[in-house]
């Protein structure tokens, strides 16, 4: 077997092997049991005391969501201020300017919602202060926000009737101090040992072999990159993201970055099983997600390894696969694997340029973001999947003529309405945004809407990808799109914020409403939701919903490009 493919298989296997014990640990943390990092308790209590928060007070789902929104609103204002003033704030050795209002708006929201879409280049568009105090801070807290929301849902799905679902701030703080921070420190040490820069000095001047003088950007990179991946954020220190040799120095760091970004989303599935003591349910969810993940990954790896037939016609040897836009040190299989890993979860970091992938590979990347629940983002992936579970339970109940129930709670019209609103919102934001961009491009493609270098099918894919990435809070892009303009910064800013909070509030609302209902013990008449049959049902629901929502748009972009080759 090709050693590169074997490497990818081993990488995925290792990630799963690490995710199971981590899931057990996360379940313990949220259940309030004794764990390894309990020594952080005094620090947590200090923050609670100075904030005037009683972390032991139980909240209902509405109070939890108000708390979530309130702290996010404060961070939004804070991020806007820092980004718009970074030019005259300290820690700016390279003398980079402040961001324009629309770029600051886009960047603040992008990092706030765990997306990290970057319409700027880190080397010239941000300062050390804004990268560390604002952007890296948001990478930690946005990931913790998603994890805390998932913890509330876990608590709501317990076999009991209650409206008390724990304390949001408690879950939030524990996600930071006991999950994200310790893991980030371990990963940062690995990166530093492998040559990733960690310095506050400005650009370095080097002389190349040809005798040219080159200014090389650097900075405290190793501090940011661990949480960039562990928190499924994806925002890089440098514009080239993990294709930059300082952000991803060698094949070992490439492995560590790939494992890091997949680790917590996978662990959250197992954490659900351990927390609810329903391991079979967790394995069913893992199975459905993994089948979806492999359906996207395997074709991508095959297509990229086969190379680009249009380039082959020019007489270029395609023995190494389609290498345009890929790093020679990583090769096609690891780049193709990364491209799906980073899009099924909401990281959006890249070690190769997605714009250069084969048309159907690009389609798979978009499909991964359109589904957004094959593992999904930090905490929010499991919330997105929960929506599909609710729809599948409801449809299954109708099919077999039984009252739809999930974990002993009846699924009724109210929960279905919320699930449908959340599901349809994604299609509306993606297709509405793309339609608007296409309309403006059709009116004035030369001056005011001159953002496409590829005006054909691929140009449509670039615009579709951008809105898909924003709605999924992913952050990767087809970088042929000129997106640092008021139109793109503002419209994608709105898609980012709408695509984040309603899909969190919706599932938490469903879970909170279910928790308040009478618990019905399982009986012979209960529809089993931890079986292979139900797993197939969920997969079918995801397939049908995604196909109905997005197939026409995909036909106009990547599919048309594929058939025109």
């Amino acid at each position: 077997m090709n050693s590169e493919i074997l490497g990818v298989i081993l990488m995925f296997g290792l990630t799963v092997a690490l995710a199971i014990p981590l899931g057990k640990y996360i379940a313990k943390v949220y259940a309030g049991e004794k764990s390894l990092f309990d020594f952080f308790a005094p620090l947590e209590n200090f923050f609670f005391r100075i904030s005037g928060i009683n972390a032991k007070r139980e909240m209902n789902w509405k109070e939890s969501m108000v708390a979530l929104l309130t702290i996010n609103l404060v961070w939004f204002l804070f991020a806007m201020f820092i980004l718009m003033c970074q030019g005259w704030l300290p820690l700016n050795p390279d003398g980079n300017p402040s961001m324009s209002p629309h770029l600051a708006f886009n960047t603040a929201i992008s990092f706030l919602v765990n997306c990290n879409l970057q319409d700027y280049s880190g080397e010239t568009g941000a300062t050390y202060l804004s990268q560390l105090v604002c952007l890296m801070f948001l990478q930690f807290v946005s990931a913790a926000t998603g994890l805390a929301a998932a913890a509330i849902v876990f608590n709501a799905l317990k076999e009991r009737t209650t409206d008390k679902l724990g304390n949001f701030y408690n879950y939030f703080m524990k996600s930071l101090t006991r999950i994200l921070l310790p893991l980030s420190i371990v990963v940062a040490i690995i990166f530093i040992l492998n040559g990733m820069p960690m310095t506050f000095h400005g650009k370095d001047k080097i002389t190349s072999l040809q005798g040219d003088t080159v200014q090389v950007s650097r900075g405290p990179v190793a501090a940011m990159i661990p949480i960039k991946h562990l928190g499924t954020n994806g925002g890089g220190w440098f514009g080239a993201n993990s294709a930059h040799p300082f952000e991803n120095p060698n094949y070992l760091t490439n492995i560590v970055e790939m494992i890091a970004q997949l680790l917590i989303p996978l662990a959250m599935i197992f954490a659900l099983g351990f927390y609810l003591k329903r391991r079979k349910l967790a394995w069913m969810i893992f199975g459905v997600m993994t089948v979806g993940f492999l359906c996207l990954t395997i074709p991508n790896m095959v297509m990229e390894q086969h190379g680009n037939p249009e380039i082959a016609k020019m007489g270029v040897n395609m023995g190494a696969g389609a290498m345009e836009g890929k790093e020679v040190r990583f090769g096609t299989p690891a780049s193709a694997y990364w491209s799906i890993v980073t899009t099924v979860i909401s990281t959006g970091s890249v070690n190769s340029m997605h714009d250069s992938f084969m048309p159907l590979s690009g389609m798979n990347q978009m499909l991964a973001m359109m589904v957004n629940s094959f593992y999904g983002g930090c905490g929010v992936g499991i919330l997105n999947f929960f929506i599909f579970i609710i729809i599948a339970v409801f449809i299954s109940g109708l099919m077999v003529g039984r009252t739809p129930e999930f974990l002993g709670k009846k699924i009724e019209a109210k929960e279905m309405k919320i699930a449908v609103i959340v599901t349809l919102l994604s299609a509306l934001l993606i297709k509405g945004g793309t339609a608007l961009a296409c309309y403006l491009f059709a009116i004035d493609p030369v001056s005011r809407a001159a953002w496409l270098n590829n005006p054909g099918f691929h140009g449509f894919s670039e615009m579709l990808y951008q809105f898909t990435s924003c709605n999924a809070n992913n952050g990767s892009g087809f970088e042929g799109l000129g997106d640092n303009t008021p139109f793109w910064n503002i419209t994608t800013g709105f898609v980012l914020i709408l695509g984040r909070y309603l899909p969190i509030i919706g599932p938490v609302a469903i879970a909170g409403i279910l928790a308040n209902k009478k618990f019905i013990p399982e009986s012979a008449g209960t529809l089993k939701t931890d079986t292979l049959t139900f797993g197939v049902m969920i997969f079918a629901v995801i397939f049908i919903v995604t196909a109905l929502s997005y197939f026409p748009a995909l036909v106009l972009g990547p599919l048309a490009e594929f058939f025109s080759m």
Binding site: K62, M65, V66, L69, N72, L73, F76, L77, M80, M84, S100, P101, H102, A104, F105, A108, I109, K414, K417, I418, P486, I490, G493, F494, I497, L498, Y501, L502, I505, G506, A509, I513
Partner: peptide
């Protein structure tokens, strides 16, 4: 121009958050 755009975008962000606060009650009563 920059000041006007800054104020407008800050206001737009605040309106979004206001909508999210309202969506909590909306989902509760739907």
């Amino acid at each position: 121009m920059e000041t006007v755009m800054t104020i407008a975008l800050l206001a737009a962000g605040l309106v979004c958050f206001w909508l999210f606060y309202k969506s909590i009650d909306f989902f509760d009563k739907i």
